[in-house]
Design a protein around this nucleic acid. Structure first.
Lengths: 199, 199
DNA sequence: CCACATTTGTAGCGCTCACTACATTATGGA
DNA sequence: TCCATAATGTAGTGAGCGCTACAAATGTGG
């Protein structure tokens, strides 16, 4: 059997470029013309590799999550719930204002509401956001079992809380909040977790 | 001088309908066809009254803010910073999950990122969000002056914090979080303000 | 009743959108 | 070498977008 002409572009590098366009303009605001230009390919190559605009988004989201995975692992490996929260929030403040990326978070900027025909895009984003919340919840369940969090603490509620603050920071970052402003938000938020911790 | 044919539709009622479309589908996801249908008018009437799709959005945002204004006034009239925060957050949890409206908040759902040609839409939304933050900040400045908030408290940071949590709750509501989940987030958030209060 | 001013409904403008037909080119296997 | 296979570049496709020209309709002032 013949193997066909080999792909002439690096799919991961192209995905990184596409990710940035979705991040900056949102799913609906990003056009195939913009995407193909930054990816350095033509539409047929895009559709052969990713199937559709939505397929490209999913691939970009997967790559985004994959890139964050090890960072997240390191965060939840912190010794206490308080420290997990602090590293998580401060790290978020920094990454959401990192000039190397568009401001905010792709999983929020990507599109909370979409037009007819793209209704599942918001669901896709929400599913990826839920991954982080799940990791936090599991970590807080452990923290409670270890006696690090108070008996009265609700790990699921705390994880949801952090998830909300992170999303909120993304909204603020996208509208121009600078790193110092986000760090202040993070600092206040940590107190709420601290308050549920022992000692 | 003659006065011309009178307008045959109620602009405010039409705006309420348009608001809901922007809320549910975002600025870019909302089409003129959808908007004119729910408004019960034809495109020329829309353009005569509001100038453009963006003009319609601005009018809808103004109306949205106007509707919230008296509610906000009542919130910040609560006796203490803690109570302001609690009413604000609990009220937000309720309104963002009110089945009478689309889930979340128009000022977040409307569009955080837009395509080329609509770059100022996110700014418009951010400006309206900033109004709430400003009211909260002024209220917390007063609370600090009254000795209600600790000497070490930073009113601007607390207002930014609440603003972030509110935006984050909007993100969660739009992806299906129910009222109870948002109330839990609100409850945890209040503790952070409580922690900065005297007694 | 008439002239003017403004809105309304019909119909469709130009444009951009996501997506693709097709011929060409580049590889591996027989 | 020659075929099968798959990616590439060119050049579009139909559909839907925001928006508008135009004439008929509906009001007011004289």
């Amino acid at each position: 059997m013949a193997m066909g002409r080999p792909r002439a572009f690096d799919a991961d590098a192209a995905l990184d470029q596409a990710m940035e366009v979705f991040w900056r303009h949102g799913y609906e605001g990003a056009t195939i013309a913009q995407l193909t230009e930054v990816m350095g390919i033509n539409p047929p190559s895009l559709y052969a590799a990713f199937g559709s605009k939505e397929g490209l988004l999913k691939a970009a989201l997967d790559r985004y999550s994959a890139k964050r995975a090890c960072w997240l692992e390191e965060i939840v490996s912190a010794p206490t719930a308080r420290e997990v929260a602090e590293r998580m929030l401060m790290g978020t403040a920094d990454s959401q204002t990192d000039p190397a990326n568009p401001p905010g978070c792709l999983l929020v900027q990507g599109g909370l509401a979409c037009g007819t025909g793209s209704e599942n895009v918001p669901f896709e984003l929400a599913a990826h956001r839920a991954q982080t919340e799940n990791q936090l919840r599991e970590r807080f369940v452990r923290a409670k079992a270890e006696g690090d969090l108070k008996e009265t603490a609700d790990p699921a509620a705390l994880a949801r809380y952090l998830s909300a603050v992170i999303a909120g920071m993304g909204v603020m970052a996208s509208s121009g909040a600078d790193r110092e402003a986000l760090r202040q938000v993070a600092a206040v938020s940590v107190k709420a977790i601290e308050e549920q911790s022992n000692s």
